[in-house]
Simulated scan of single mutants.
Amino acid sequence: MTDTILDVRGLSVDIATAGGVLHAVRDISLKVERGKTLCVVGESGCGKSMTSLAIMDLLPKGARRSAAALSFAGEDLSRAPGKRFNALRGNRMAMIFQEPMTALNPAYTIGDQLAEPYRLHRGASAAQARDRAVYLLDKVGIASPAERLGQYPHQLSGGLRQRVMIAMALMCEPELLIADEPTTALDVTIQAQILRLLADLQKEFGVAIMLITHDLGVVARIADRVAVMYAGQVVEEGPAAALFSDPRHPYTRGLLDCIPVPGRTARGGRLGAIPGVVPSLVGEVHGCSFRDRCPHARPVCAEDPPAREVDGHRWRCILEKAA
C-alpha cells in the first residue's frame, strides 16, 4: 500500500467573471502522506480554500477545475463523475469547514447530522449510528454526549460546534481529513484544544490531515510538511523544520519576518511587513506574481520563475535562497 493518500498534480481552478477569467488556483501540485499533516499556508485570497474545494469536488457554480492528476489512494479522480465523489465524501475523505455555524444545518439536531453520513455510507441502523455519534462526541471532548444529540447548532458554543464538525468528519473513519481553518474565530485557549485534539485523533486513527490556515504559529505546532501559497500558486513546499529554519522563497521569508520572536524582537519594536498588494489574477498572468512586492526583483522576474528542489524542499524563484 502506498504511503501517499492524496497526490495532486497540475491542479487549476478558473472562474468566469465580468472582467475576464479569474485564475484562482494555478497549476499546483501537492502530496499528503498517510498519518501525516500537510499545512497549506498563505494570506487571505491566495487560493487555499478553493484548492480544498477543488479536491473535494465542491467548487461553486461557474468554477472549472482541471488537473493532470488528482489521485486518492491510488485512484485518479481528475475525471471521475459526481457519483464517485458522492461515495467518497464523508466516507473515505472528509472535510471540516471554516465556519461551523454555517456548515451545520440549523434545522436539524446534532444527532441527525452526525448519523446521516454513517447510515448512508455504512448502511448502519439508527441505533448503531447513535452509538457511534456518542462515542465520537465523547472522543472530541464534549461532556454529556448523549444529551447533545438532541440539541441544535445554535445551542452550542463556537468551540463545541467545531468539535461537532470534527466528530462528524470522523464518523466513517476517513483516510483523509481536510480542515479549512478549523481554529478561525476561536479564542486562543480553544484553538490550542482543537489542535491538540486533531493531533491526538491522528495518532489514534492514523488519518492524513491537510490543514489550511494563515497562522504560522499553528503550522509550527502541527505540520510535517508545509505548502506556502501566493496568488493561486504554491511558491514553496517542504518539510516544516526546513521551511522555518531555511526559507527559500522571499514571500516565505516575508511571512516569517512578520512574526515576533521572543528574545529577538524588541518590545515595542516594529514587526516585519510585506509592502504592496496581491496582484489581480483576472486575465493573463505572466512571470513571478510576487515580483512587485519583492525586494530582490529583477527584470528576469517578468518571466516564469524556475522550479528548484533540494532534498524534498521545492520553491519557484530565481534565487537559490531567500536573503
Score class of each variant (00 low, 15 high):
residue 59 L to H: 00
residue 60 P to W: 00
residue 67 A to Q: 07
residue 77 L to M: 09
residue 39 C to R: 06
residue 60 P to V: 00
residue 73 A to D: 15
residue 41 V to S: 02
residue 67 A to F: 03
residue 76 D to G: 15
residue 70 L to I: 05
residue 65 R to N: 10
residue 39 C to D: 09
residue 67 A to S: 11
residue 52 S to K: 04
residue 46 C to N: 06
residue 49 S to L: 09
residue 58 L to K: 04
residue 54 A to I: 09
residue 42 G to D: 01
residue 68 A to C: 13
residue 48 K to W: 13
residue 76 D to P: 11
residue 63 A to Y: 02
residue 48 K to M: 05
residue 56 M to G: 00
residue 46 C to L: 11
residue 66 S to A: 14
residue 67 A to M: 11
residue 61 K to P: 12
residue 65 R to V: 13
residue 52 S to M: 10
residue 41 V to Y: 06
residue 78 S to E: 12
residue 77 L to Y: 02
residue 66 S to E: 12
residue 66 S to R: 15
residue 76 D to M: 14
residue 76 D to I: 13
residue 41 V to H: 05
residue 72 F to R: 07
residue 46 C to R: 06
residue 78 S to Y: 11
residue 38 L to K: 02
residue 59 L to T: 00
residue 59 L to W: 00
residue 72 F to D: 05
residue 39 C to W: 09
residue 64 R to I: 15
residue 40 V to R: 04
residue 47 G to V: 01
residue 41 V to A: 10
residue 59 L to V: 00
residue 48 K to R: 06
residue 39 C to S: 12
residue 37 T to W: 05
residue 41 V to Q: 04
residue 43 E to T: 02
residue 60 P to Q: 04
residue 55 I to Y: 07
residue 43 E to Q: 06
residue 37 T to A: 09
residue 38 L to A: 03
residue 52 S to P: 04
residue 63 A to R: 01
residue 38 L to D: 03
residue 79 R to K: 15
residue 62 G to W: 01
residue 55 I to Q: 05
residue 50 M to C: 08
residue 55 I to G: 01
residue 65 R to K: 13
residue 72 F to C: 09
residue 51 T to F: 08
residue 41 V to P: 02
residue 40 V to S: 05
residue 58 L to R: 05
residue 45 G to N: 11
residue 74 G to D: 09
residue 56 M to R: 03
residue 75 E to W: 11
residue 69 A to R: 12
residue 71 S to A: 15
residue 43 E to V: 04
residue 72 F to Q: 07
residue 75 E to K: 15
residue 68 A to Q: 13
residue 42 G to E: 02
residue 75 E to Q: 14
residue 69 A to S: 15
residue 77 L to D: 01
residue 40 V to D: 07
residue 66 S to L: 14
residue 79 R to V: 12
residue 59 L to P: 00
residue 51 T to V: 10
residue 78 S to N: 12
residue 80 A to V: 08
residue 64 R to N: 14
residue 56 M to P: 00
residue 69 A to F: 11
residue 68 A to L: 13
residue 70 L to M: 07
residue 56 M to E: 08
residue 71 S to V: 15
residue 74 G to S: 12
residue 46 C to E: 07
residue 54 A to W: 13
residue 54 A to N: 10
residue 40 V to I: 15
residue 62 G to T: 01
residue 48 K to A: 04
residue 57 D to C: 13
residue 50 M to L: 13
residue 50 M to Q: 07
